[in-house]
Amino acid sequence: MTSHVTPDSAVRGVGSDGDRLDPRHSPTPPPAAATPAPRPTKRARIRYNRTESRWGYAFVAPALILFAIMGIYTIGYGLALSFARWNGFSPNWEWVGFQNFTDLLFGSKTYAPRVQAAALNTLWVCIAVPVLTIAVSFPLAIILNSAKRFQGILRSVYFVPYVTTGIAVYLAWQYILEPNGAINALLKALGLGSLSQPQGFLGNPDTALPTLIIVLVWSAVPVAMLLYLTGLQSLDTSVFEAATLDGAGWWRTNTAIVWPLLRATTGIVFLLNLRDALQGFQIFLIMTNGGPGNHTNVLGLETYRLAFLSELAPTLGLASALGWMLFLAALAIALINQRLEKRAQ
């Protein structure tokens, strides 16, 4: 049998006669002088397929087992826990049905007000971080893309916050933002002492959350900028040439042509940052621990506090329930985003 393999069929692994090809075989036709291979019997092909399937399963088994242990088991455990009262130590869980969910939403005077205040802070973060990240990273990408020299160096410089972001950087930010920190010193040196914060930018309840949002944006811009740069470099240059011929200036080109063409990238940047803003808590835990006076508490941090910082109270179930509510919120946002994308297309 001589197999005729088109590029398309090579991708699908199917010969023109519908036979399944052995992927280990070369897709190129054998030389004309070669003796045709004897056609395998149906039973031999079935046996061969079974053996191959077994090998396939053997190879994916490690990954599947690990996923089953680390993924499905954990997810199932977490879901079950959200219906229980437990402190992480006692051998038995106390099943409470949906009480954890209702307590967090409205039922408990202890937890519901905390969750509501954290939800409001989270909402601000969810709006401000994606919007500001896009507002900074899109123009930055355009400027970088049009830079004639040192583009590589500049790109690396702007990417530094991403590769250095972590606990050490957040602690460094703390020092910069404290009452005797660099920002207050700079403001005083510039004659803008009235803008300095005597209690530090994280010590004033009015400036603490906006300051954290700025730090979050600072660490989110590099990836967003890189995504925009990738998008910009994939655009057809003839579109810009046509726009130039039509007399469109820099501003008009970027707002009327580039921005709409990169709408998909903007969607991804928005969604990624929204997800981080909704579920992230590292920066809040390290820099403020939700303070001062719970003014920067967010839902991600509240989940962590209920799980591990509740003085051994049996609130792991509450933490799990809050985690699931956050997951549902993220899912809803993703679905809404998908719907809007489709409508826009």
């Binding site: 404290e178 209690q199 530090g200 010590g203 303070g291 006076g293």
Partner: peptide, 8 residues
């Protein structure tokens, strides 16, 4: 002391 509210 200024900033005491931010210190652990």
């Amino acid at each position: 002391m200024p900033g005491s509210q931010t210190l652990d």
